[in-house]
């Protein structure tokens, strides 16, 4: 027999104070509250537990929960700061903050380096780049001869691996992206500037008395 439960507010295990989150990020309090509306919708799409699991994350990106994708997995793992297999609200906001148009470029470069350093060795290695390239080709159902893949890798390392040790370190990456700024486009989400207009319902659910903007 179940226990009686009065109507309590649904629990969000990592729901940190919006005022504190705003103070740690480029978001205003209103924007953090608008992000909470987005978070609620994603975190309840499969299991309504107030946390985002990998399936929910992929569903939000692809509108298809069965789609496996190396890159979406990789982003999920970086958002899952506490390594619990789920993203709580605090980590969601702090991770998205890196993608804010006003976030420091250094943070964006750092995040992108971690994204591609899949094994966490502190280097982007040739076999990692090859793995990502092959994943991309299979995702887009594009066929390239092995020889062409190797040519692309050769060209990439010729440009990025300045000390020619076969791997790309952080400073080589900083140098490489500064010469190829288009690579950092994925690290900025213009949507984050207008988040309060995208999720206006935050106003009705606000927990903060005076909404600071």
């Amino acid at each position: 027999m179940g226990c009686f439960q009065s109507k309590t507010r649904k629990q969000f295990p990592g729901h940190e104070n919006p005022v504190i989150l705003a103070s740690q990020t480029a978001f205003s309090v209103s924007e953090v509250e608008a992000l909470f509306e987005l978070f609620k919708s994603i975190s309840s799409s499969v299991i309504d537990d107030g946390l985002i699991n990998k399936e929910e994350f992929q569903l939000a990106i692809f509108k298809n929960r069965k789609k496996e994708n190396l890159f979406a997995n990789r982003i999920f793992d970086l958002f899952d700061v506490k390594r619990k297999g789920v993203i709580d609200f605090g980590d969601f906001v702090r991770s998205l903050n890196v993608f804010h148009p006003n976030a420091p470029q250094e943070d964006k470069i750092d995040f992108s380096f971690k994204l591609y350093d899949m094994d966490g060795t502190g280097y982007i290695e040739r076999q990692e780049v090859k793995q990502m390239l092959i994943a991309l080709l299979s995702e887009s159902e594009m066929r390239l001869a092995d020889e062409t893949v190797e040519t692309i890798l050769d060209k990439t390392f010729l440009e990025a691996d300045v000390n020619e040790d076969g791997k790309i370190d952080k400073s080589e990456w900083q140098n490489f992206v500064s010469r190829n700024p288009s690579l950092m486009k994925i690290m900025t989400l213009p949507y984050l500037r207008d988040i309060t207009t995208t999720f206006p319902s935050f106003v009705f659910n606000s927990e903060v008395d005076e909404i600071a903007t």
Binding site: I61, F62, F71, I75, L133, L183, L189
Partner: peptide, 25 residues
């Protein structure tokens, strides 16, 4: 043509890296 691009230019076009989809209702 892919061969004229470096690997990261190709990779950065992956849909899985496009977090903008999170904001599309």
């Amino acid at each position: 043509r892919p061969v004229t691009m470096n690997a990261f230019e190709l990779i950065s076009k992956s849909q899985g890296l496009n977090l903008g989809c999170l904001f599309e209702k």
